[in-house]
Amino acid sequence: MNENVIQCINLSKDYGSGPVLEQLNLTIGSGRIIGLLGPNGTGKTTLIKILAGLLQPTSGQVLVDGHVPGPESKAVVSYLPDKMYFADWMKAKDLLDLFEDFYADFDRAKAEQMCASLGIVPTQRMKTMSKGTKEKMQLVLVMSRKAKLYLLDEPIAGVDPAARDFIMNTILTNYSQDGTVLISTHLIGDIERVLDEVLFLKDTKVVLHDTVDNIREQQGKSVDALFREMFRMNPIEGGNQDAQ
């Protein structure tokens, strides 16, 4: 067993127009729920895609459960992308079949149960589902795997507040004891109480990596408030990047 689920050493990524991530060093242990926070365009999705093995780092090293991202790591990583990738002719049931075929750790009974409680009809086609229902469906599939690392890229952006609570509870009760969940989101207030740790990304770097309770203890304010303060922009001048 590897203690560190995620390990990044001097990780950099450059798409050609300047660095997106620069010399990132990061270790994340198992059994935790971590919020990946930062303003738009600070590399959250890039980091998640590198961990999922969809992007190659420009330099530096990444280890997921002790492996360089590849077949071994993908077998233990459950990834929820920020975009839908399912064909719209597929029914909810087809997707369950697909995931059952594809992943050895997929728990079909659990997925069907979650579908039922979220009101997803197995015979409904993707193209007739609302944006929120599609997102729920995707989350059901991803959380029904018994993975070591769940990478959730903006999982609750399109769902209503009541379903959001349900989804956060789903994540809480379904991640396996030794599994780590990395969630990128802008809805900090909604998920703050389920997080162990938060990671703030800013200008290609990790500027803060601490537990939620430490932040509240030291700053006397919620992570949501701290975020707003750290990344405050001036609307008249069109946003000041150096604003502290």
Partner: peptide, 17 residues
């Protein structure tokens, strides 16, 4: 721990503490 944590909607590690 898990039961109370899920009832309160918080992280189990926080409840444990």
């Amino acid at each position: 721990v898990r039961d109370v944590a899920s009832e309160a909607g918080v992280n189990p590690n926080t409840m444990q503490r």
